[in-house]
Design a binder for these strands. Structure first.
Lengths: 204, 204
DNA sequence: AAGATCGGATACCATGACTATCCAACCCGG
DNA sequence: CCGGGTTGGATAGTCATGGTATCCGATCTT
């Protein structure tokens, strides 16, 4: 298809498609002439992925570029690819103060593998420090409940991973980023549901 | 304390403190003269909350202002206050297409209370639609697992809520926003932990 | 009395994510 | 085979956000 159809199919303005091409988020089409190129279904899907990561997951384009680079050239180490992708997700740890006291305590309490270089470790430290600074520290009990529950979830996610190979990486990398908003929305809805039961008069 | 000490205590530049005052995020200090004001511990904490919501939860200042307004004047309906606060959280539903087919199906499958006006409903629709458009639709089975697990989590959160009143609102509203990054970081760490077991050679 | 600090107002700036224009080469229907 | 509409590519402009910087006259401190 030509670019006009890509625009029509995705609902993205032409100027934006050109912008994504310039920025290297969208691969160029197969050139069929000096001023003509052919796009495919892959391009349609790629634009949907970019928009999902940008609008819903809220990632900046620079991080989206990094994630797409991993998806495009995953190497043969799924574990390393996952690590690279998680590094593109917020919150981004502050460069100063490389100590990770809260994260370390949490990881040990939950019996997880400790790896200070894994991006999620810094993200956990930052999230715990922010909650604490705001006056709502996470209690040990809450941490244990959260850790147990999310461990269950991770168990399910990893068990369902397709066997190693090309599609597994894409699935795991994009799923990490795209399912998080679903998780958060479900938690908020569950809060509403439980809060309604507890706070609303029974007949309301 | 005077503004210089507020700056020192929070590590926030003076220009930024003034900016927060201008934007109405930080209440003015008690004026002790035409060009002098007195700040309190409340101001120190408020700045920590603003920075946490901005840097870690990633909320734009306009939404932070809305959340702080709820915290400052919660009214007497904790449930309504929670709803208002959740409305300030991303992803922000698209204005067009007010139909919520995916969210409705999900809510019914999980046996939750259906309320199309609750902000989290639109957020769920948007998150499910984005995952689908990107080629990674959430299966019914996955939805059920996520729903069950997050329901457990919500049960714990709501059970631990202090009885109605002033502090309960602040706790619930800020907790919703500030604990989410902790949840995500824990999930990513749990993924790492489980993926390591499955993908790394046992001796590595 | 004098140097530092303060609150308040105004102006400026950097980044991110587009958006608009222009141009010359093209393709396609008549 | 020609002319209007598309295309790719380049360049410049725009808008929102989240700050910074400067200036000022009043005031506090010593």
């Amino acid at each position: 298809m030509r670019v006009s159809e890509l625009v029509r199919r995705t609902g993205t303005p032409l100027a934006t498609v050109k912008f994504y091409l310039r920025e290297g988020l969208l691969p160029a089409g197969r050139a069929t002439g000096a001023t003509q190129a052919e796009y495919t279904e892959e391009h349609v899907r790629r634009i949907a992925v970019i928009r999902a990561l940008s609008d819903v997951a809220g990632l900046p384009l620079a991080k989206i570029r990094a994630i797409l680079a991993v998806v495009d050239a995953p190497g043969d180490d799924l574990f390393a690819a996952l690590g690279a992708a998680v590094g593109a997700l917020p919150p981004y740890p502050s460069p100063e103060d490389p100590a990770l006291p809260r994260a370390r305590a949490a990881v040990e309490r939950l019996g997880l593998h400790w790896d200070p270089d894994y991006p999620a470790t810094g993200q956990l430290e930052r999230a715990l420090a922010a909650a604490e600074a705001a006056g709502l520290p996470i209690s040990d009990e809450r941490l244990e409940v959260y850790g147990r529950v999310l461990g269950e979830l991770a168990e399910y996610d990893i068990a369902g991973l397709p066997p190693s190979g090309g599609p597994a990486v894409e699935y795991a990398v994009l799923g990490t980023a795209l399912y998080e908003p679903v998780l958060l929305a479900l938690r908020r809805l569950a809060h509403e549901d439980r809060a309604r039961r507890r706070l609303r008069p029974p007949g309301a």
